[in-house]
Each structure stands twice: as C-alpha cells, then as structure tokens.
Design a protein around this nucleic acid. Structure first.
Length: 423
RNA sequence: GGUGAGGUGGAUGAGUGGCUGAAAUCAGCAGUUUGCUAAACUGCCGUACUGGUAAAACGGUACCGAGGGUUCGAAUCCCUCCCUCACCGCCA
C-alpha cells in the first residue's frame, strides 16, 4: 500500500507516476484524498468527544468518593448524549477507514523514475545481454524430448498422480534438481544470505501482507478447511518473517535465502507457453529477500542483480536483463529487472528471475519498520528476487548444453551432481 | 481427536472496576563513578492515528489475542471467536 501521508502531500506526483504504470483509475487518488480528509476530521471530533467523556467519568469517580451522590447522578445524564454522538462518529470513522483501505489496496506502487515508458513486454528495455547464443547441431532436441530420451522427467506420470503441470523428476533429472537447489543455496550463503526453510503454506494474514491477497487470490491453491494458501513463492513466508517488527538499523540489510517448492494455479495459460517445463503448477525455486534501509535499497537491488548474474554465468547460460516498463511491471513493484535465459532449441527467451525493489509498498502492509538515527520509526524497503527458479533453467541447460552423446553439466555444478554429463 | 491451562510492553511477569499505558525484574539507551573490564548509582526506555511545530517540544485518542456487551468508568465482569502451550490417543 502507498503511504497515505505521501499521497496527501504529493497528489500530482502520485498521479503522474501512476500514469507511467498505465493505471486506469487515476480518479481513485482524488477520491482517496476526499475520504482521508473526512477521516481525519471525523477522528478529531470523535477524539474530542471521547476526551470529554473521559473527563466526566473521572469527575463522577471523584464525586462518588466525596459522597456527593446526587451530583454524580446528574453528570451521568451529561455523558449519555456524548455516548450517543460517539457511536455514530465511530461508525463514520470506521467506514472512512475501510473505504480508504479499499482504495489503497487498489492503487499500485509508484514506479521509480528509471522505469521506462511502455505498455507491453516489447517495451521493456534490454539493459544487458551476455553470452553466446549457441548454434545447435542439426537434429537438436527441445528439452521435453531430451527428457524423454534420457528419462529425466515425466509429465504424463504427473498427470496420473496429480494433474497437468506437476512433473515427476527421475534419475539424473531428479539429481539435477537437487544439485541446482544446493548450488543456489550455497552461492547465496557465500553472498551473505541467511538460509531459512519456511512453511510451504501460509495463513491469510501473511498472504495479505505481501500482497498476494486480495489481487492474486485465484493464482494460489487454497486449503479451505484450514484457511491456508500454498505458497506461490518463498517470498511470502520469508518476507513475513519481519511482519510487525521494528528492526535495529545495525541489523540491516537483513538478507534471507530460502529454497521452497512453489505452487501456482496459472489459470488461463495455454499453448507453447506451457510446453514441457516452460510453465508448471509446482516447481522449485531459491528466493533471495532483503530488508533494507530506504537510502540504500537501490544499492541492494544492484547487488542482487549481480548475484543473479553470477549464477547464470556459472551455469554458462546466455542471458539478458530487462528493465520492465511501466505497463509490464507488477502491481507492487517500484522497479523490476527480469532475467531471461536463451533456450536454444525452442529459440526463445525464458524468464528465470525477477528482481524487484518494492520500496515501502510491502512494508506498509507488513508494518515492518526500523528506528532511524532520530529514534523515529520508518518503514523499511523490501526487495526480493529469484536466484533462481529451476524449471526454465533446466530447460535451457538441457537444450543449450546438449551434444550428440548427452548433455554437458557446467563445471560449477559438477561437484553437486557428481556426474559431468547426462547420458 | 480428547482433556486441561493460558494469551499483558523487547523478555520474564504483577495486576479482579476509577489512584494502571500498565508494578517489578532483565535486556536496551544516555550519563556519573572507574587505569581497563566488571560492578554500583541516576535518568530514559511501547505502538498507531491525530492536533501542533520549520523540525522538535507539547497535547488528544486508541490499543493488555480479536470482536461484541455491561457500566458514568473495563487489562480487570459477561458473551462469541481465534491462537498458543501441556498431557493423553494416533502418526512420522
């Protein structure tokens, strides 16, 4: 959520920046300000009213103690009307607060000034491209055919057990998953991240705090009997570690890394996008999260980008980094970089990571603050990124590194797999 | 699943109707003392909204798991819900 004080003080800036995101309901900003004004006025009147009531209650107490019963009884009548007024004021205030919240959750985060203009993925800016696009030999296979050839994963089997989009990894394919997870975790640990293994289901409060609810409700698997949600990313449980906390500045940035399976309903996807491992309902991901000082969060973002880059380089995959345009970035992000690897047999770029700075948009919901040098509480900045999501890495790894005799495993990964080639 | 206990500030933990936004202790912060460390002593030490201010100071309101109720007045009494812990059963 945006901070209401900022909106109140900078309404034109807010509108200007929301326009970059192609936010269609700019009128909400003005509505918000009107409601905020009502809210504050109502609160003032109500507070005064309650203050008066408190004062009278005190007087009555004193009068009773002095044995002045009749006077005390008189005062009681005076309170009755005040209480009556308070009731309606309380309703009015609660309504205003509810309305304000309802609007705030519909307004996306403000894009950082670096966010490029644009509406569609084609308008994203390629800031960097690294690595050679491999020229594959005649007869090179796409990863789903390689999987068949080497018996690495089985989608049909997953259909029997669960349904479409739940792969069963086998043999060297299974080992590869485990190796990648370990590799990513170890690299993150070297970069100073603290590993956590979070719950794979979260309660409603957690899902709300990171913004999955209400906007992405349909994308999560919902365990209705218990009111839990299967996590769509470790970002949700991990970021909630600091929910309702006030951090010490000396403990920042807090750096977390977590491996978890991710569960996504992916309603409405189809076609070549879902072929093979391109898009599945359950997948493995290592996620990095940082809780940073507002003045340093963009430095932190750069550091996270460098970390993700180093992973892709060690896996010897050609990649490019996109700075997402206003229209393509997520609701709650202020600045997002997507990482794509080239999948040489499919001849297309696949998104494998998304690294974002949310500034205070998440922390405002999370109520995660720190104490600044003046001992005042301020909202922290939250950032997260995949480092990395496995399926498309596997797809690209298989396709790019395939040879006539098998699939070469990059040197950095071999200590984990224990084999140098899939065959 | 059964039974019992309990949810109070960063922690422990007191508090059965007004003197309690909340004792005490510990931790933390500032200072005094001190060759250093330790110890001792003094003061400070919740959050949110809101008024006020250039910013502070300062003021108001709310919050003792959540929501309702009783009362002039609720952490304290009543109701509903949620959660946690312990023991038993079952399971890994």
């Amino acid at each position: 959520m945006l901070e209401i004080t900022y909106v109140r003080q900078n309404p034109e800036d807010v509108k200007k920046r929301l326009a970059v995101k192609h936010f269609a309901e700019l009128h909400l900003v003005d509505e918000l300000l009107v409601i905020d004004e009502t809210r504050r006025q109502t609160q003032k009147v109500l507070d005064d009213n309650l203050a008066r009531q408190n004062a009278i209650a005190k007087e009555i107490g004193d009068l009773f103690k002095q044995g002045k019963k009749a006077e005390a009884e008189n005062k009681k009548a005076e309170v009755a009307q005040l209480k009556e007024d308070s009731k309606s004021l309380e309703v009015k205030l609660a309504d205003a607060e509810q309305d304000m919240r309802n609007i705030l959750v519909r307004i996306p985060n403000l894009p950082n000034p670096q966010v490029p203009e644009g509406k569609i993925p084609e308008h994203n800016v390629v800031v960097k491209q690294v690595g050679e696009i491999p020229a594959l030999a005649e007869g090179a296979l796409e990863h789903w055919d390689l999987a068949k050839k080497y018996d690495l994963f089985d989608l049909e089997l997953g259909v029997k057990i669960t349904g479409a989009g739940f792969p069963v990894y086998k043999k060297q394919g299974a080992k590869l998953q485990r190796s990648l997870v370990s590799f990513f975790l170890d690299e993150a640990e070297k970069a100073g991240y603290m590993e956590v293994i979070p719950p794979h289901m979260v309660n409603e409060a957690s899902a709300f705090a990171t913004g999955q609810l209400p906007d992405k409700e349909g994308q999560m698997y919902h365990i209705t009997v218990d009111g839990f949600y299967m996590i769509p990313t470790a970002e949700v449980p991990v970021t909630n570690i600091v929910r309702d906390e006030i951090l010490e500045e000396k403990n920042m940035p807090a750096k977390f890394v977590a491996y978890s399976p991710c569960f996504r309903r992916e309603a409405g996807s189809y076609g070549k996008d879902v072929r093979g491992l391109n898009r599945v309902h359950q997948f493995e991901k290592v996620e990095i999260v940082q809780i940073a000082h507002p003045d340093k969060s963009y430095q932190v973002l750069d550091e996270m980008i460098a970390h993700v880059e180093s992973l892709l380089q060690k896996l010897e995959l050609p990649y490019r980094i996109l700075r997402l345009c206003g229209g393509d970035m997520s609701f709650s992000s202020a600045l997002t970089y997507d990482f794509e690897v080239y999948s040489a047999a499919q001849k297309r770029w696949l998104e494998v990571s998304s690294v974002s700075n949310f500034e205070t948009y998440q922390s405002n919901r999370l109520k995660t603050r720190f104490r600044d040098e003046n001992k005042k509480t301020r909202l922290v900045h939250t950032l997260n990124g995949s480092a990395l999501a496995l399926p498309r890495i596997v797809a690209s790894l298989l396709e790019n590194h395939q040879t006539a005799n098998g699939v070469r495993i990059p040197a950095a990964l071999q200590p984990y797999t224990g084999f140098s080639a899939i065959s």
